[in-house]
Design a binder for these strands. Structure first.
Length: 312
DNA sequence: AAGAACATCAACCGCTCCAAA
DNA sequence: CTTTGGAGCGGTTGATGTTCT
C-alpha cells in the first residue's frame, strides 16, 4: 500500500517495449497471471506487478477492441455517465471489449468537449442555459432526455430492442399509439426531425437507423411551428444552431451529420422509454388498437402544421 | 521551415476496498 | 476486531503526434 516501491528496486517504468509485451503475453498465456506481485519475477520482467497488470488489462488482453468508438458506444457512454458519473469501471462493464481507461480517456478528450460545445454541462448533464422560454433547441432535447432517463431509472422497461419496438409501432396506424404523459419529448423530436428532413443524405441515414418509412417533406412544409425557432436556421442543408448563454452570446455551431444521428438515436431512446413507461403505468396490454384517439389528440396539441404529423 | 500550442492516450500514482490471517 | 496486503479504481502526468501561427 502507499507509494509503489518500484523506484526503490530499480524497476523499469515508462512505455513498454515489444520484447516486454511478448514476455508478459507468453507468461500469462501459459500460466495465467496468478499473483500479479509475483508475476514479474516469474516472467523475467523488470517491472512491478501493478505495471504488468495495467499493461495486460488495458492493452495486451486478447479480448480488447481498439480503435474508434462507434456512435452506439458514444451514446452508451454518455447515457451511463449521466446515471453513474465517473465510475469508469461500471461504465466499462456495459461496453464489451472496452477498458475503463480507454473510456475515461475518450470521455475526457472527446465527449466532454462535445457536450460542452452543445451547451450541456458534462458533469451534471444539464443545460447551462435552461432557464426560460428561450431554451435552445438542443436544451429542450437534452432536458427531455434527462426526464425520460429518470423514468427509466425509476421503473423497468418492457421489451428488448427499442428500435424493433418503435418499428413495430410505426408500421401500424399511428393513431393507435398510446398518448405519452407529456409532450416535451415529442416537441424536441419534432425540432430534430424537422432539421433532419431538409437533407436527403441524412434522411437516408435516418431511415436506415430506424427502419421507418419516411418521405422527405417539401421545403414549403418545413415551417417550424411548435418549437423555438430563434436559435435555429437551415443553410445549404446543414443545421446551424446558435447557442445562447449569458456569458457567451452568439456562438455558432454547425452540427455534423454524426452529431445529428447521435442526437436522433438518443432522443428516440428517450421517446420510446416515454411511451413504454406510460403503457406500463396504465397496465398496457400490448394492443395499441384500444387507443385510437390518442395520437389524434397529440397531433391536435402539436398543431395541424406540425412537421411531426407530416412525418407519419 | 520552425517553434508553439494543442490533442491524444498509455502509463503511473495514490487511494480505497475487501478478503484472509 | 484489527492488521495486512493484493487488486482495482479514478485522477493525473508526460511523451508523442498533430495542427496552428
Amino acid at each position: 500500500m502507499g507509494r509503489s516501491p518500484s523506484f526503490e528496486k530499480g524497476l523499469k517504468k515508462g512505455p513498454w517495449t515489444t520484447e516486454e509485451d511478448r514476455k508478459l503475453v507468453a507468461y500469462i498465456e501459459e500460466h495465467g497471471h496468478g499473483s500479479w506481485r509475483a508475476l514479474p519475477v516469474k516472467a523475467g520482467l523488470q517491472r512491478c506487478g501493478k505495471s504488468c497488470r495495467l499493461r495486460w488489462t488495458n492493452y495486451l488482453r486478447p479480448d480488447i477492441k481498439r480503435g474508434k468508438f462507434s456512435l452506439q458506444e458514444e451514446q452508451t457512454i454518455i447515457q451511463l455517465h449521466a446515471l453513474l458519473g465517473n465510475r469508469w469501471s461500471a461504465i466499462a462493464t456495459h461496453l464489451p471489449k472496452r477498458t475503463d481507461n480507454e473510456i475515461k480517456n475518450y470521455w475526457n478528450t472527446h465527449l466532454k468537449k462535445r457536450l460542452t460545445k452543445m451547451g450541456i454541462d458534462p458533469i451534471t448533464h444539464k443545460s447551462r442555459t435552461a432557464v426560460n422560454a428561450n431554451l435552445s433547441h438542443m436544451t429542450q432535447w437534452e432536458n427531455a432526455r434527462l426526464e425520460a432517463e429518470a423514468r427509466l431509472v425509476r421503473g423497468p422497461r418492457v421489451g428488448t430492442n427499442f428500435y424493433q419496438r418503435f418499428h413495430y409501432s410505426s408500421t401500424k396506424s399511428l393513431v393507435t399509439m398510446p398518448q405519452p404523459l407529456c409532450l416535451d419529448v415529442l416537441k424536441a423530436w419534432q425540432g430534430i426531425t424537422l432539421s433532419k428532413l431538409t437533407d436527403l443524405s441524412r434522411l437516408e441515414s435516418f431511415k436506415n437507423q430506424t427502419n421507418m418509412q419516411v418521405e422527405p417533406l417539401a421545403l414549403n412544409d418545413m415551417t417550424p411551428t411548435n418549437h423555438n425557432t430563434n436559435n435555429l436556421k437551415i443553410t445549404n442543408g446543414s443545421l446551424v444552431n446558435t447557442f445562447e448563454s449569458p456569458n457567451d452570446e452568439g456562438i455558432q455551431n454547425t452540427l455534423e451529420a454524426s452529431d445529428m444521428i447521435y442526437q436522433d438515436n438518443y432522443l428516440m431512446e428517450a421517446f420510446t422509454n416515454h411511451f413504454v413507461n406510460d403503457a406500463n403505468n396504465r397496465s398496457f396490454d400490448g394492443d395499441f388498437e384500444d387507443d385510437n384517439n390518442y395520437w389524434s389528440n397529440i397531433l391536435d396539441k402539436l398543431g395541424n402544421n406540425s412537421s411531426f404529423s407530416s412525418i407519419f
